[in-house]
Amino acid sequence: MAELGGHVLQHLGLAASALALALVVAVPLGILAANRAALRGGVLGLASVGRTLPSLAILMLLLPLLGVGVAPAVVALALLAIPPIVINVDVGIRGVAPAALEAATAMGMTGAQRFFRVIVPLAIPVSLSGVRTATTETIASATLATFIGAGGLGDEIVRGLQTDNSPLLFGAAAVVAALALGADLLLAASGRLAAREA
């Protein structure tokens, strides 16, 4: 049981690092796609292909390049998390009503003010739904990190299967399902909150 706790922390660590890395890359890419029509097609096309690739395949394709362990797992999970965030940031920003932008300009706001005070708050609800998708998928896919030796709750599931230890397996499966569902509900609630504030 103590080991389960360690694996939960390891699992959340993997997912959180991957999401942090993904946000750093995906948010600027999403903003770029929304503002530069010339780049939008390319960025969104790549994101759409990325969205299609099986998560196990992404983990395994990095294996010859980056080897096994935590670092390649984090990179692979981040690659999985980037597309839904890019797509939703772009949709969120382009969905901001032109009237709101015109009003901001008419009020004499500078470009930066307009971006941070008008576009960001209005784009957050849609962007957050992308983060929500990315989070549940990252927590789920982090289970597969066990296959490249990165630990996490996948270790417990695999060990439970190999040793035919049902309690261990059911326990680990329930915990990882609860983590994914919990994160999903939490982000759904914060999305509603953000929508109300906007």
Binding site: T136, I139, A140, S141, T143, L144, L153, G154, I157, G160, L161, S166, L169, F170, A172, A173, A174, V176, A177, A180, L181, D184
Partner: peptide
Amino acid sequence: GAIYTVPSLALLAVVVQ
């Protein structure tokens, strides 16, 4: 949707049992 959120390896392991 909640079922869909369950990681595939976890569900699969349970089904294997």
